[in-house]
Write a protein that binds this DNA or RNA. Structure first.
Lengths: 144, 144
DNA sequence: GCTATATAGGATAAATATGATCCTATTTAT
DNA sequence: ATAAATAGGATCATATTTATCCTATATAGC
């Protein structure tokens, strides 16, 4: 029951972009190297984030990736769900047809509560707030 | 980021056992049929729950499975973690060596909070409480 | 227009995890 | 002894995840 590597990579990518000056275009390669994400794989992930509307991909020479969302508003939940789909923890909540015990069983009420809490906690974590609470990363890794 | 089917099966198994009179031995086959869990697979799952100390498996004729833990104390977290291992959501929390950014990055503090909430919510859900809040299941499915 | 620099995106591979079943052995009540 | 159960190793099947390859396409600069 873990975040996939793709999800983790997406978070690293957005974290990097959030640390840049607003609107700056950075090469995929730079993100890849600094954040330890395989280049081509990052390409696929960036496409998903782009479709979700959080960033823009510019082709051609001098091309790269630019964050379009505001780090003040963009949060962990947005980014994770852009990659992994709506979080659910338990099959039956999202896809009731997959478990006939859905309405019968109070177990699922617990999972539903857990899911609500998880999504809320991730939603509260904006990228700006995460950068602020960690100036070390900001300095050492992201703005070099 | 979902509970595996094995985890779901384990919960169904314990739910069934919790609805029986205390100490009653039930055949694996009965649990399997009623709760819709493949028989042999349930065998493997029961072994794990047995190793965790929550139930006892009796071999031989008239053998089967018997809950040894109290439904009042046994909770969702116990059962899920007996199957899936300690829940973590994010690799880096449990295995710091898998991500060098561990201490540097406040992202992981968020995941840590989410993990704590999740485990707490599951821990609060005892099997007794889940049975009580759903008499329908109790009547229709478990005690037949 | 040509060239170098980037990403796009389909196809496919490789690795891992998950779900399930097969088969023989072992245990126990009668 | 026999029938009824589970134990447990081996194996298979499938799905998911994590990449990478390769050709196409877009763009800046000369």
């Amino acid at each position: 029951m873990r975040l996939t590597r793709a999800g983790e990579y997406a978070v690293r990518c957005v974290l990097y972009l959030s640390a840049q000056e607003e609107g700056k275009i950075v090469r995929r390669r730079d993100i890849s190297k600094t954040m330890g994400v395989p280049g081509q794989f990052l390409g696929k992930i960036a496409q998903q984030l782009s479709r979700a509307g959080f960033l823009e991909i510019i082709q051609g020479a001098k091309g790269g990736i630019r964050l379009t969302a505001s780090p003040m508003e963009l949060n962990l939940l947005d980014v994770v769900e852009a990659i992994a789909g709506e979080l659910s923890l338990n099959d039956c909540i999202i896809r009731p047809e997959s478990c006939s015990r859905n309405d019968l069983c109070s177990v699922h009420l617990v999972w539903q509560k857990a899911r609500r809490q998880l999504r809320e906690t991730l939603r509260e974590a904006t990228f700006e707030s995460m950068l602020q609470t960690d100036s070390r990363m900001n300095t050492d890794l992201l703005v070099q």
